[in-house]
Write a protein that binds this DNA or RNA. Structure first.
Lengths: 158, 158
DNA sequence: TTGATTTAGTGGCATATACCACTTTCAACG
DNA sequence: CGTTGAAAGTGGTATATGCCACTAAATCAA
């Protein structure tokens, strides 16, 4: 039975990460469904909320997310009136983002549900273990994987 | 400065998970790009490979993935000739999946690149720590979050 | 055997994300 | 000043995923 000796996908860090993400997504989304927001959207609203009218690029950087992906993700939230954008008066390249009144209200509502999910998760997994998990994940998000695929030590400007 | 006292999104298990997933996705995808497969596709091919002509439902269950999502994800792989499907002769509801010859070759190719990425990840994070991470993620994928949202102890068939 | 129920997938629709090719602004230089 | 190159976003295209409504096939009951 070769299948027992094959490593299985449990060996792949990325595959494990995605699988666990799907699992948690189903859970958090389910709990937060009454608010009408997906957990992803709630997270984005929150990030904007604590960001102080952040620029698109700042949000993307904080979330380790592609800038264009952020733009797309933001669209439904703008369409539904939870978020609005405006051009930075000092640098017209920069687009800043903020919550609308409605967005703040909706975020409040969603946060209450979030707490339920979060609490439940920690009850099941253990507060201490959850903390360790988040710390590890935070580390990973900050890593630098530079593959030295022919790194010119110093481009020497030539 | 209220921003320093706000919990930041680092408190949310799900948000952390997604952020780390994006980070690793960018890394693994980048390393595996030469094969033409995304890391997600490589993972799926591998799962099929070790599954012994698995049924759609079996794959979805193993990956904690929605069945319809799996169907969609499979399409490009079928289109590109890496995977083929056939109806189970003993139960025509069941659709089984297997790699084509071309699919096996492509998987081999991608696995070599995967090993590079995997190795690099473990070099940076530490083999032991990576192992703990995967174990935790594996646990999470197997959890049962039943929120007793009015659980009728026994529907009593009425 | 027939009608109700359950199981396995499909298709449509919507969000999440990524990469690439542009466009618009700034900023730096000569 | 212009020219040039970097910085910030936008739009298009493609995959990843999920939910829901629906169909087909198998099972269970009566």
């Amino acid at each position: 039975m070769p299948k027992d000796t094959l490593p299985g996908l449990t060996a792949c860090n990325y595959a494990m990460l995605r699988r666990a993400t799907r699992k948690l997504g189903q859970f958090y989304d389910d709990v937060q469904a009454p608010s009408g927001l997906k957990a992803t959207q709630q997270g984005l609203l929150y990030q904007i909320h604590i960001g102080g009218e952040p620029a698109m690029g700042a949000i993307a950087a904080a979330l380790v997310m592609d800038l264009s992906a952020l733009g797309h993700t933001l669209k439904p939230l703008v369409r539904d009136g939870f978020v609005e954008t405006f051009t930075d008066p000092d640098d017209r390249r920069i687009k800043r983002v903020r919550l609308t009144q409605q967005g703040r209200i909706k975020l409040d509502e969603a946060m209450k549900l979030w707490q339920t999910a979060q609490q439940r998760f920690e009850d099941v997994v253990g507060k201490e273990k959850a903390e360790r998990l988040r710390a590890m994940l935070d580390d990973i998000s900050a890593l630098d994987f530079d593959l030295p695929t022919a790194t010119p030590a110093i481009p020497a400007k030539a």
